[in-house]
Design a binder for these strands. Structure first.
Lengths: 255, 255
DNA sequence: CCGGATTTGCGCAAATTGCGCAATAATGGA
DNA sequence: TCCATTATTGCGCAATTTGCGCAAATCCGG
């Protein structure tokens, strides 16, 4: 019984190298497109790859969908907020990036820039790990699957060895006089520590978060902080009154 | 000028929810397949998704390919080793999973089982974070992009707060009398600490690693340890002579 | 040396995609 | 309020790709 796992392994390597079309693979291995198609069918059945029109790509991790499902919500608003926040940070700054999909959207924009990044946002790891100008430090600790971030004593212990120029964070809700709310004490405890260890605090929040007291645990905000939101100025007035600098994000029509 | 980001956001959410074919999406949104196709084309141009034959999937992170390129090398051997190692660990054990693609292959098999997992292997995070029976703890620290793992003082500090039943590790090379070799002192320092904090040590190594002194930094092995390899018994004899228990992995023809 | 099984290449029907075109719907300005 | 402009939508057709059956080639074990 002869099995040809060799060419299939080579196909996986070729796919990783960027060769994605059937004809190219057929030429590379000196076999007919039919044979390549059969190989791709085989690999596809094993969930190692996904077929495309005219080729294939490496299988997307089928597991990381729990957060991506929420990623779509308010996607354009989050993209606009992230873009506006990017204008606030200067090249070379050390940044703390908190968990949450809005901060994640911001982090994705950092590729190509030069920063030291400290984060507990696990979704950003594959994005920033191999970015040329980025030096990435991960805060360890217990993983919260629903938010794809870490928290707890280990994360705080690591953070106590570090300081940063700026914290970029978000929250389940913001309320004037109360601060940021989250579901667990672990999260707000870490958030408070992050605020202490950063020289300035920037909060990214879409309109749905403003004034929302959706969770029982609160992290108070420092005397001066920056709020980046796409909400109209009136909705953010209460925060400006108590020390927030307001940065307006305009959803670009091209999003 | 009217832009329809709304349906596109919804499409992303639907893709995350598992709806992947054009006709299904067309039915779900009450529009024609042509419209869905145009939406997918748009999202594909923005690299948010990848087109497949008859549908689309969420974009595979284009960044995490540096490691996947190596993933293909010795893929069948690694899969066999991972499967053999799985038989050694008992349900409920606390495991330390080190970096490296062989250990990663092992970690992927843990979904569906019940374990506490402590790891610096960043590639395993999306795999194990939302697995039902898995409690995941990440060791923080500086990220090594080439190996997609963390190391350094922060990782070691976190590990000093933890112990485990078993360590699963690998290396760039293994040599009798020397132990495991890696490229940097940071890595071997962490490896040594991992061995201290685990009650038993299991090394996963394909045949190409045995006897290879490819790197200058060495982590000595404990008096008793387990070697899982697909290499013939003769190649591993020198390790057995100095305290290793040998577990043979048989590459299944179906791989 | 030979039988059996696997793999390979090719042709054809079916499905999918891409593109042009006309109709519809919404937006901004007069 | 009305109109012109522009984006969006649905449909049909040509081009490409896929899936499948079948025959030839290849390889392995006895």
């Amino acid at each position: 019984m002869r099995r040809n796992g060799a060419r299939r392994d080579a196909i996986l390597a070729a796919l990783a190298a960027g060769e994605t079309d059937v004809d190219g693979l057929a030429a590379r291995f000196g076999v007919s497109p039919s044979t390549i198609r059969r190989d791709l069918q085989h690999l596809s059945a094993r969930r190692a790859i996904a077929r495309t029109y005219g080729g294939a790509i490496l299988a997307p991790a089928a597991e990381e969908q729990s957060l991506l499902a929420r990623e779509g919500i308010q996607r354009t608003a989050k993209a606009a907020i992230a873009a506006a926040a990017l204008a606030l940070v200067e090249e070379g700054e050390t940044l703390i990036l908190d968990g949450g999909s809005t901060v994640e959207a911001f982090g994705r924009l950092l590729r190509g820039r030069r920063h030291r990044v400290i984060t507990n946002n696990l979704a950003l790891i594959p994005v920033l790990a191999d970015a040329p100008g980025i030096e990435l430090v991960v805060l360890g600790g217990a993983v919260r699957p629903i938010s794809m971030s870490t928290a707890g004593p280990l994360a705080e212990a690591a953070l106590r060895c570090l300081t940063a120029d700026r914290l970029l964070t978000s929250a389940d809700g913001l309320a004037p006089g109360l601060g940021l709310c989250e579901a667990t004490l672990e999260q707000v405890s870490l958030k408070s520590l992050m605020m202490q260890r950063a020289a300035s605090v920037t909060v990214l929040a879409d309109a749905s978060k403003l004034g929302r007291a959706s969770q029982p645990c609160w992290a108070p905000l420092p005397a001066r902080w920056t709020l980046v939101t796409e909400a109209p100025e009136a909705a953010a007035a209460a925060f400006v009154a108590e020390g927030a600098a307001l940065v307006a994000a305009r959803p670009s029509p091209a999003m």
